[in-house]
Amino acid sequence: MSKLLNTVNQRTQLAGENRLELLLFRLEDKQLYGINVFKVKKIITCPALNEMPHRHPIALGVANTMDGPLPILDLKLAIGHGASEKVRGNSVIVAEYNRKMQGFLVHKVEHIINIEWSEIHPPPRSVGKEHYLTAISKYGDEIIEIIDVEKIIAEIMPFNETVNNPLTEALDSAYEKQNEEGSAPNKNVLVVDDSVVARNQIKRCLEAVGFTCTLLKNGLEAYQHLEEITVSGKHPNDEYLMMISDIEMPEMDGYTLTRRVKENPDMKDLYTLLHTSLSGVFNKAMVEKVGADDFIAKFDANELANAVLERLKPSSAA
């Protein structure tokens, strides 16, 4: 399986082309699941685990690896399908989410497929609200379920969403300047993310420092929304201070959304911040390739709040 991953760093040319590669796996059942290859660091056989005191039931234990202690999570139990019958000897997908490494216990890792984001769709409404899917797709005659890993991690290792330093000086300076000009500061932010957990995290973070948010679920929905604004004769900057976009989204990814916005003369001035858990493989070259104005790895409430507050400074507003 290591051969499947030894060329991951060569796959970054997919950025901005609305394509991705999925690592397919199973969880002791017939269902096929997928995870973005960009998230995966390596695949190992589950070793002996050390018990963790007061552990969450999903956390099986900690493995001692060459890279240090690695928490191992039972992915089957996490999505409500019962505990894995076998642990030792099963496969572990080692991945980076939100600046931390985790190991996800799975039954069997299969192979990698190359697919277009347009072939990945939001979960059907029939699954209800209490589910762990962020998207679905097809491979042959099988349905691929893409799990909302951020939701799982947030449940067992909640993020610190407290904003310690709201940069009140930046706010006061911006308000004073704009009040002198007889205009109120634009404090509405367009937030684009397919994970309901991530959308709500960003919303709570920004509302804590006085902003309002418009929440959308994917890049296609966001681009169509911006098109409607321009068709009405307005500019996106009339409606929004900036756009914060995830990268991994069904229908249209954040890379493609950013590139299309920056290529559109009626939208290109909209400040765009990419905000994603793809921190382990993301680099400055990708930001420049699609024309994004900035990038922040998920999830640091202070870092995100500060980045948005910076947009209210007189120099930024100009």
Score class of each variant (00 low, 15 high):
residue 3 K to C: 03
residue 4 L to H: 05
residue 6 N to C: 07
residue 7 T to F: 12
residue 9 N to P: 00
residue 13 Q to T: 08
residue 24 L to N: 09
residue 24 L to D: 10
residue 25 F to T: 01
residue 28 E to Q: 15
residue 28 E to H: 07
residue 30 K to G: 05
residue 32 L to F: 03
residue 33 Y to S: 01
residue 35 I to D: 05
residue 36 N to A: 11
residue 36 N to Y: 10
residue 37 V to T: 14
residue 42 K to R: 15
residue 43 I to A: 10
residue 54 H to P: 00
residue 56 H to W: 07
residue 57 P to T: 10
residue 58 I to S: 09
residue 60 L to M: 14
residue 66 M to C: 11
residue 68 G to L: 12
residue 68 G to V: 09
residue 70 L to Q: 04
residue 71 P to G: 08
residue 72 I to N: 07
residue 72 I to A: 11
residue 74 D to K: 03
residue 76 K to T: 06
residue 82 G to D: 06
residue 82 G to L: 11
residue 83 A to C: 06
residue 85 E to Q: 14
residue 87 V to D: 08
residue 87 V to Q: 10
residue 91 S to N: 13
residue 92 V to E: 06
residue 93 I to Q: 02
residue 95 A to L: 04
residue 103 G to T: 09
residue 103 G to M: 07
residue 104 F to S: 09
residue 108 K to M: 10
residue 108 K to T: 15
residue 112 I to C: 10
residue 113 I to G: 05
residue 114 N to T: 15
residue 114 N to A: 15
residue 115 I to W: 02
residue 116 E to H: 13
residue 117 W to M: 14
residue 120 I to E: 10
residue 122 P to S: 12
residue 122 P to E: 12
residue 124 P to V: 12
residue 130 E to S: 13
residue 133 L to W: 10
residue 135 A to W: 11
residue 137 S to D: 05
residue 141 D to I: 06
residue 142 E to C: 01
residue 143 I to M: 12
residue 150 E to L: 04
residue 151 K to Q: 09
residue 152 I to P: 01
residue 157 M to E: 11
residue 158 P to A: 08
residue 159 F to M: 06
residue 162 T to W: 04
residue 164 N to Q: 12
residue 164 N to L: 14
residue 165 N to K: 12
residue 168 T to Y: 06
residue 169 E to P: 00
residue 176 E to H: 12
residue 177 K to G: 00
residue 178 Q to N: 13
residue 178 Q to K: 11
residue 180 E to C: 03
residue 180 E to V: 05
residue 181 E to S: 07
residue 181 E to T: 05
residue 181 E to W: 01
residue 183 S to V: 15
residue 185 P to C: 05
residue 186 N to V: 09
residue 186 N to I: 13
residue 187 K to H: 03
residue 190 L to H: 07
residue 193 D to Q: 01
residue 194 D to V: 02
residue 200 N to G: 01
residue 201 Q to T: 06
residue 202 I to K: 01
residue 204 R to Q: 12
residue 205 C to A: 02
residue 206 L to F: 03
residue 210 G to M: 02
residue 211 F to P: 02
residue 212 T to I: 00
residue 216 L to I: 04
residue 218 N to Q: 02
residue 222 A to K: 03
residue 226 L to E: 07
residue 227 E to N: 15
residue 228 E to I: 03
residue 230 T to Y: 07
residue 230 T to S: 13
residue 232 S to F: 00
residue 234 K to V: 00
residue 235 H to S: 09
residue 236 P to F: 06
residue 237 N to V: 13
residue 245 S to R: 09
residue 245 S to M: 07
residue 246 D to H: 05
residue 246 D to T: 05
residue 247 I to L: 15
residue 250 P to N: 08
residue 251 E to L: 13
residue 251 E to I: 13
residue 254 G to W: 07
residue 255 Y to W: 15
residue 256 T to D: 04
residue 258 T to P: 04
residue 260 R to S: 08
residue 260 R to M: 14
residue 262 K to R: 04
residue 263 E to L: 11
residue 264 N to P: 03
residue 265 P to Q: 08
residue 267 M to H: 02
residue 271 Y to E: 00
residue 271 Y to C: 00
residue 275 H to D: 01
residue 284 K to T: 14
residue 285 A to Q: 15
residue 289 K to A: 14
residue 290 V to D: 03
residue 295 F to V: 08
residue 296 I to T: 02
residue 299 F to L: 13
residue 302 N to P: 03
residue 304 L to H: 01
residue 308 V to A: 06
residue 314 P to C: 03
residue 317 A to M: 14
